[in-house]
Simulated scan of single mutants.
Amino acid sequence: MIRNLIRKAHTCNDILENFSPLSSETDRVYKIFTNAVNGLLYPENGEYLSTFGECSSYYALQGIKKRMQAHPVGAKILQEKPRIRTPYVDFNKLRALSPNTFGKQYIDHMDSLNLVPDERPLVKHIGDLDLAYIFQRYKEIHDFLHLLLSKEISVYEEIEVKIYEFQQLELASTALASLVGPLRLSLWEKIELLRNGAPKMISLANKGKFCMNVHYEAHFEQDMEEFKKWFFSP
């Protein structure tokens, strides 16, 4: 199996180097349980939620793969496996783009929050390279969704983004964050989420483009408002 993965590697050598397959179904269930519990106890540590997502999302990832294969852009992404990290994206070139462009506003958003794309944890427990890539791609476009949805990284806004992601992707990790995350909110924030935040995210997710079938890199030089209008259109 490893030989097959290496032949298909393309831009996924770092994932292969990080590859740590689960030894059994018992191991998978154990990791799902322990990382779910630790994710609840230590929500500031994203590694727990990431591992929980890897170990619990096999069937959801299969569904995402089918949707990508059936779409011309999604199929191209699966074939080429583009990445949102060094050296595949020149972030300094994004900083030199016009202020109105998607790429410039993305890197300004990241810089303002002191976020570094290369620091996203690598997938390591998913043995199928296509599925591993899909989960890695999902993690790497997460910041794009924050920007397109005009959301910062507060607990409330992170939950809104997770609701959007769950509505489109049905990943277990997004479900856990959407259901458990609100426990950390104030009563007023919970009411606001139920009345406005969640319904708006669900509506946007239902009417907009399927986020995994968008080649974001091809839109870096596009006007941000034009891109957002297209992204959230049927």
Rank of each mutant, 00 (worst) to 15 (best):
I159S: 03
L185R: 11
A177D: 08
S178D: 09
I191A: 13
E157N: 09
S186G: 12
S186W: 05
Y164M: 04
E157W: 10
E165I: 05
V155Q: 08
R184I: 02
S178F: 04
K162Y: 03
L171C: 04
V155K: 05
A175P: 01
Q167V: 01
E157M: 03
Y156A: 01
V180I: 14
A172D: 10
L169W: 07
K190H: 13
G181W: 07
L169R: 11
R184S: 14
Q167R: 11
S186N: 04
A172R: 14
S154V: 03
Y156M: 02
L171T: 04
E158D: 13
G181R: 08
R184T: 12
L185G: 10
L187G: 00
E158N: 03
V180S: 10
L171F: 13
V161C: 09
L169P: 08
I163K: 08
A175G: 05
L176H: 07
I159P: 10
Q167A: 14
L169C: 08
L179V: 12
R184D: 07
S154M: 08
I163H: 07
I159K: 02
E165H: 12
A177S: 15
E160W: 01
L183G: 00
I159G: 06
G181P: 09
E170P: 00
K190N: 15
I191S: 08
W188N: 09
S154N: 10
Y164F: 15
L183S: 13
E160C: 15
L169E: 07
L169M: 14
A175Y: 15
K190L: 02
S186L: 02
I159Q: 06
E165S: 12
V155T: 14
S154F: 10
Q168H: 09
L179Q: 09
I163R: 11
L176C: 03
L187S: 06
P182L: 01
W188P: 00
S173M: 11
L187M: 12
V180K: 00
T174G: 00
K162W: 03
A177P: 02
L169V: 03
L169H: 11
L187W: 13
E170C: 08
L176K: 08
S178G: 13
E170D: 05
G181C: 09
K190A: 00
I159N: 06
L185K: 11
V155G: 00
I163Q: 10
K162A: 10
L185I: 09
I163N: 09
K162T: 03
R184L: 13
E157D: 13
A172N: 12
Q168I: 06
L187T: 11
S154L: 11
S178T: 13
L171Q: 07
S154Q: 07
S178C: 05
L179C: 14
V155N: 03
E158Y: 02
E158G: 01
F166P: 02
E189Q: 15
Q168P: 11
A172S: 15
L176Y: 11
K162Q: 15
L179A: 13
L171R: 07
I159E: 05
V180R: 01
K162F: 06
I191H: 09
E160S: 00
Y164V: 02
E160F: 00
E157P: 04
E158F: 01
A177N: 06
E189M: 05
E157K: 12
E157V: 04
S154H: 07
E158K: 03
P182W: 06
